[in-house]
Design a protein around this nucleic acid. Structure first.
Lengths: 136, 136
DNA sequence: CAGAATCCTTAAGGATACTG
DNA sequence: CAGTATCCTTAAGGATTCTG
C-alpha cells in the first residue's frame, strides 16, 4: 500500500502547479471527485452499474429521491459523460438510462471505495462513537 | 471489470434492505462516501497521505481554504477516524495532523479514483464540452 | 500558532403544481 | 411517463473578529 501513496508528494505539487494563481477550481482531481459527490450521484451510479433503468424505475428504486433531483442528477451524470440517455418514442414516452463506457470505467475505480465502505463502515461508526464519547 | 460489477444487484438489494423504512440515511456506503465528499476533504486527505502536516502548513499548502473550513474539515476527518491530531505543548502550541491506519486504508481505496481522475479528466471535460455544444 | 465565535452568502436539495 | 417551472428550506462554505 505504501507503494500507492509514495508518489503523492508529486501529486500535491502537480496540484499546486495547476492551481497556479489560486485557481484551484481547475484541479482535475477535484473536478472529477466533485462528480461523485452530492447526495444521489453515487447511488444512481450504483443502480445503473447493475443494469439500465428507466426514469420511473429509478424513482421506485430510490424512493426518497425527489423527482427534481432525479432529473437533475441524471442530467449532470449525462453531461459528465457517465450516463447515456435514450428516448423511445412510444406513447407515453419511455426513457432509458445506462452507463457509458466512460461511466463504467469510472465506476470500476469508484467501486474500490464502495467495497472499502462495506468492509469498514463499522470501524468508521465506532470511531465516531469513540470520538463523541471522548468529547463528552 | 465485469467481474467487479456483476454482483451489484445484490448491493442494491442490500441497500434497499438496510434503508428499510425509507431510512436511507443508514446506508453504509453513502455514509462513507459522504465522508470523502465536501469541497476540502479529498484535498486534505491527499495532503496528509503525503506526510503529516501542521495546521499552518496545511493552510499554506491549500491557500484558498478558509481557516474555518480547515478547522472544521480536520475535525470531521478526525471524528471519522481518518486523521490523528497531536498537540505539542510548546509556546505557542503546535498541532500536527496525520493519517491513522484507518485513514491510510481508506485512502488506499480512494486513491484508485484519484488515479482514474488524473488519467481521464480530459475525457470528462470533453464530454461536457460536447454535451454543452449539443444543447446549443 | 491554532483555533473559537459570529455573521453572512451561496449552493444543494425538497415540495408542490403543471405539461407534452 | 418523464419530465418543467416555481418557490422554499436547509446545509455548506466564506469573511471577519477575537483569544489562550
Amino acid at each position: 500500500m505504501d507503494g500507492k501513496i509514495i508518489n503523492l508528494k508529486s501529486k500535491m505539487e502537480i496540484y499546486k502547479a495547476i492551481s497556479g494563481g489560486g485557481n484551484i477550481a481547475n484541479c482535475p482531481v477535484r473536478d472529477v471527485i466533485q462528480g461523485v459527490s452530492g447526495k444521489w450521484r453515487s447511488l444512481l451510479m450504483m443502480a445503473l452499474a447493475e443494469k439500465p433503468y428507466r426514469f420511473g424505475e429509478l424513482r421506485r428504486l430510490v424512493p426518497d429521491i425527489s423527482q427534481r433531483m432525479l432529473t437533475q442528477t441524471l442530467y449532470d451524470l449525462q453531461r459528465d459523460g457517465y450516463v447515456h440517455r435514450e428516448v423511445f418514442p412510444t406513447k407515453p414516452p419511455s426513457v432509458e438510462y445506462s452507463l457509458t463506457d466512460l461511466g463504467r470505467s469510472m465506476f470500476g475505480a469508484f467501486h474500490q471505495l464502495i467495497l472499502w465502505a462495506e468492509l469498514n463502515h463499522d470501524a468508521v461508526r465506532a470511531a465516531r462513537a469513540d470520538f463523541d464519547a471522548a468529547q463528552a
